[in-house]
Design a protein around this nucleic acid. Structure first.
Lengths: 346, 346
DNA sequence: TTTATCTACGTAAACGTTTACATTTTAAAC
DNA sequence: GTTTAAAATGTAAACGTTTACGTAGATAAA
């Protein structure tokens, strides 16, 4: 007896279903899709048989023929942090409702991998792609290639400005501005921005917001003070932040990426800085644990889940009725500054 | 001019590539797959042309014909928490290396959705599935149906014991046992287990570990004390935990699921219980922020990423060389008890 | 009755690959 | 210069759907 002798169900396809019912396979196909061309009686018979025999349509064949995959690609740098996770949940929640499935692709925040992923997706495997671009993406040719193949793109959070495509973002400039003002209001004299190197627009917008807030508040010379974290290994970031804290001695920190929160807290612990007494910290993050950190972290909370929902709605809307001009859709959702102990007096 | 007039690249397929090169499409196909049947010279020509014309193989057609999709389904309850996120990262890291893509399906921890997802996957859309079962799954018929279609299954973390399939899990009994002992050692007299209702084996294993630790340590009467959280809305969980704290007055808490950490901390805050002075807490979680919580949380840290890697390796190993007996593979990875302030004296 | 319209279904050609099998070309052996 | 084997290529039939087009029968209009 063969070890791998799984007694397979005779794989059931439309042909067999048709034979069973004494119908042509065309009629079966139509019946399953509720076509007006088939009688109610026949539809019922077909559906009954399909259910009884556990028939489920072969998606490869179906989409090969129909050029419709009911699949969306989600391309993200990572799913390690809670932001992208929540966005994905948002996307999935609406995709699922509309009978779409999602293919997750990670770029590991690398331009090269992003190109190769996007290039692969030109083969018609998905109906559209939702993407948050890698932070070192400098060139948008791969996006244009995708568009030329007729595959629509929706950017979320991190878009690529040279490309004309729909986007769903948050108010990066304003929220960075507000957070910086909040730090200043709470007595900070020397606020550093800890951010990430790269051409992604959200980071420059946040940086601009920070700069403008300093300007508008007549900040001391020496500012702005911006350091760029390597973004790869946590240990490297911690070291960089620690060195900066020792050298520049800031009394306020604005962090533009989620995972920097842990790094910054750790760096402060290492050199014995008390938050918020010695230094106040605010961070762009959607981490659920922000409220129970030590101390509770003031956050710029982006509506991650809603962002995913909106992006998916836009894309699916376009895919089902082509009448919206997808490329002109640019949504900006407001973030919320949630003030907690890390910027408080205590 | 048509609004939707995307000047599509003439979609390039093998036929066109073949014509361009004055070759048959069979030879082109073989050349692209590095078949020994085609000369090095021709291979080079074909590959050059493919690259130049941005040809990328149509996966639908390819897998329709070859019955190989190079796609894995990952079926999880949610991806909201860091545990599943890390597992997915682990899976993706090895899948990507082996040229597989991943389709993410969420069950929202519901048996019905799990059935419908698994049922859909019987259509040959994926080569195999990696799954962590919903907590209220009572019946494994859908898994058997999948197996009968010849689609292999690997369970990770939460398996379904009635089904004969590969699994990668952690030492749930032992780690719950050890964590409970740790709480007892640190002076707890009355430890409650906060867990989740459902038939999933990991929860019963953790419960057993907890029970056995109490027995072995001659715990007081009144124990064990176990409450089951609704698992749906955070607010409900917080209320349940708060009520329990007020009524049963435990001095130790063992939490079996990640998202309960925030809920438990919040409940304690609400009624003014100091951690760890009034109550000590340990939790099964892989949250990165555990160390910077207030207070830092003692965790049973599961090797989530490795778990994903192992599960994917097993599955892909089986898919590429069918000679391993997949169903007999049962890996158990050790968790680590990471002791922090939440169970300390302070 | 004839013709037109509508309803319900069937036929067969795609979709873009892979692959068993057949054929040609090249090289080796005689 | 045959014959034989090996190497390189070609032919055509799948894979399981969808869908343009065709058609038979029923009903309505003339």
């Amino acid at each position: 007896m063969n070890m791998n002798d799984e007694s397979n169900d005779r794989k059931i396809n439309m042909k067999m279903l048709a034979r069973e019912l004494n119908l042509s396979i065309a009629t079966v196909s139509r019946a399953l899709k509720d076509s007006y061309e088939v009688s109610d009686q026949t539809k019922a018979r077909v559906k009954e048989a399909a259910a009884r025999l556990n028939y489920v349509v072969n998606t490869q064949a179906s989409s090969l023929r129909s050029h419709k995959t009911y699949t969306l690609a989600i391309v993200v740098p990572e799913i390690g942090d809670s932001f992208f996770t929540q966005v994905i949940n948002g996307i999935e929640s609406v995709a699922d409702k509309k009978k779409y499935r999602v293919l997750i692709c990670m770029t590991h925040d690398s331009y090269e991998r992003e190109m190769s992923v996007i290039n692969e997706l030109t083969n018609g495997r998905v109906d559209g792609v939702l993407i948050s671009v890698a932070s070192n993406t400098r060139n948008g040719d791969h996006f244009n290639a995708l568009k030329r193949k007729g595959i629509p793109i929706v950017f979320f959070d991190r878009d690529f400005k040279e490309i004309n495509a729909a986007s769903v973002k948050t108010d990066d400039f304003e929220s960075a501005y507000n957070a910086t003002c909040h730090l200043l209001d709470n007595g900070c004299k020397k606020i550093s921005l800890i951010t990430v190197r790269g051409g992604v627009s959200i980071f420059s917008a946040r940086e601009e917001g920070y700069r403008q807030a300093l300007i508008d508040n007549h900040s001391k010379p020496g500012l702005p003070d911006i350091i760029h974290c390597a973004n790869e290994h946590s240990a490297d970031n911690i070291a960089m932040i620690r060195d900066h804290l020792l050298k520049a001695r800031p009394d306020g920190l604005l962090l533009t990426v989620e995972h920097l929160s842990t790094d910054a807290y750790t760096a402060c612990q290492l050199i014995g800085l008390k938050i918020p007494a010695d230094i106040k910290i605010a961070c762009f993050t959607t981490q659920l644990t922000a409220g129970i950190l030590n101390p509770a972290l003031t956050t710029i909370q982006q509506p991650a889940f809603e962002m995913g929902q909106k992006a998916a709605e836009l894309l699916i809307e376009y895919l089902t009725y082509k009448y919206i001009q997808l490329e002109n859709q640019h949504l900006v959702l407001p973030s919320k500054l949630i003030i907690r102990d890390s910027t408080g007096l205590r």
